[in-house]
């Protein structure tokens, strides 16, 4: 007990107070920490209130992370639930084969998987070839991880709306980014990472849903079937309400995970192309460990913590509201 407590104090508790302190300094991460100069709220001012590259980068990262999360969380949750419901069918066989193969990517190294997907996302790689096949050749192969075009920008383009033809309000600057930039949607490269992230996490979430589904007594479904309910009614009127607590657990897990996506960005894109895969977590690393601005990085990390904490609280409030 005591050794565990000491380890914990040294490596978790005390450091967090250090980190808060260093977010108010100009420490570069290289010189002895004691030489860092106290600069008050300077780091936070630069990130939030001063028009410039550092504020632009911070909000760019925040924007990318938000798109990432808004895309991945609903996608992985819905697919995981769908798979769990399908696998949980009474008469279905090979259940353990399906469960095993879906869960398998979750146990592998994120770095190895990122490497593998980098290979699949090449211009002549598997992903493009499959898309070409299923669209009967209509799909134009793209170099996924080198493509900075935003999804919404591409869609705007179909309707003739480009940066040049965009109305004046879209060119306006909000928090060091133009409205046009804010509305970019995830870039193709970011979507590549989003698909990868969904692919690796679905398995875990499906297993969590399966555990919850197996707690629902068979009789409940049998009774509903006897009363003539169809599959859709059973899903929305019975399954969904019963797994609601699990659903919110999975969404929380997804939010926390997507707001700190790092490994995949490090291996697959290093934040590029055109900073469209720059995430907040990667920005923390880049500022602190490659740009020698540890104080600034600590400030970003603190802001990220506040964001994740707030999101979790908001989400919990919604959960509790729904229960009543």
């Amino acid at each position: 007990m005591t050794p565990a407590l000491i380890l914990f104090a040294v490596f978790v508790f005390i450091p967090i107070f250090f980190a808060i302190y260093f977010s108010f300094t100009d420490w570069n991460g290289i010189s002895p920490p004691a030489e860092a100069k106290f600069v008050g709220f300077e780091n936070f001012r630069v990130l939030l209130f001063e028009d410039g590259i550092r504020r632009a980068d911070f909000f760019k990262a925040l924007k990318n992370t938000a798109y990432f999360s808004l895309g991945v969380v609903p996608m992985q949750t819905a697919l995981a639930l769908l798979l769990a419901v399908v696998v949980n069918q009474r008469r279905l066989r090979f259940k353990s084969f399906f469960r095993t193969s879906y869960y398998f990517p979750s146990i592998t190294s994120s770095i190895a998987i990122s490497m593998l997907f980098l290979f699949l996302y090449q211009k002549n790689g598997l992903v493009n070839q499959v898309l070409e096949t299923i669209t009967f050749g209509a799909w134009e192969p793209i170099a996924w991880m080198a493509d900075p075009r935003g999804l919404f920008h591409i869609i705007f383009g179909w309707f003739g709306l480009t940066l040049e033809t965009a109305p004046a309000w879209m060119q306006a600057n909000v928090l060091s980014l133009s409205v046009w930039d804010w509305l970019s949607g995830p870039s193709v490269a970011l979507m590549g990472i989003m698909l990868l992230n969904t692919w690796t996490t679905i398995g875990t979430m499906m297993v969590i849903f399966l555990a919850a589904l197996q707690d629902v007594p068979r009789e409940v479904y049998e009774a509903a079937e006897m009363d003539g309910a169809n599959a859709r009614q059973i899903f929305f009127k019975i399954t969904l309400p019963l797994v609601r607590p699990t659903l919110f657990f999975v969404v929380t897990l997804g939010l926390i995970g997507t707001f700190q996506v790092f490994d995949q960005v490090y291996v697959m894109s290093s934040g590029g192309p055109a900073k469209t895969t720059l995430t907040v977590a990667y920005l923390v690393y880049r500022n602190g460990f490659t740009n020698s601005q540890m104080g600034l990085a600590a400030a970003i990390a603190l802001l990220l913590f506040i964001i994740i904490f707030t999101l979790t609280l908001v989400q919990r409030r919604i959960t509790e509201g729904k229960k009543e």
Binding site: P15, F18, A19, P33, V284, Y285
Partner: peptide, 18 residues
């Protein structure tokens, strides 16, 4: 502390190890 995301613990960890 389980609520504190890994990326947030990165810098504190580095400070202590250094």
């Amino acid at each position: 502390t389980m609520m504190i995301p890994g990326i947030v613990q990165l810098i504190p960890m580095f400070i202590v190890l250094k």
